[in-house]
Amino acid sequence: MPTYQLKVNGTSKSLDVASDTPLLWVLRDHLDLVGTKYGCGIGQCGACTVHVEGTAVRSCSLTLEQLDGKSITTIEGLSEFGEHPVQQAWKEADVPQCGYCQAGQIMTASAFLDNNPNPTEEEIKNAMHGNICRCGTYNRIYKAVEKAADQMN
């Protein structure tokens, strides 16, 4: 089995793990980074969203082999103490109910705002449409993204 290299939250990791293992399970089972959540396994719900080279991706749908040598950011590495403007906006808006999907929501929102710091209402809604929140906290997710955009400007 080949060894794969990932840079996860700034730290280089050497992984002797089967090549077809989805990044999601590499993070959760091999690297103990359980903030990235399993929701559907087919890229439909967004709970597993992480950044690969700064772009939001579904970690359940990319294999270790596809990501060899890439730089990954997970919710644990978005900021040191949760001080990223998106995390803080999530706190101020008190977004979560059960909280399970929120790491994925935050990762989607933070990559989106990096590319579009002045989004319109429609752009925010389009950007967040791929992440399901079963508790229905969409009103607060929208408010938090809007708030974070204000903070980042």
């Binding site: 903030g35 997970t74 979560p96 909280g99 929120q102």
Partner: peptide
């Protein structure tokens, strides 16, 4: 649990 949720604990 807000701080734990937003930091992925």
């Amino acid at each position: 649990d807000i701080d734990e949720i937003i930091t992925g604990k």
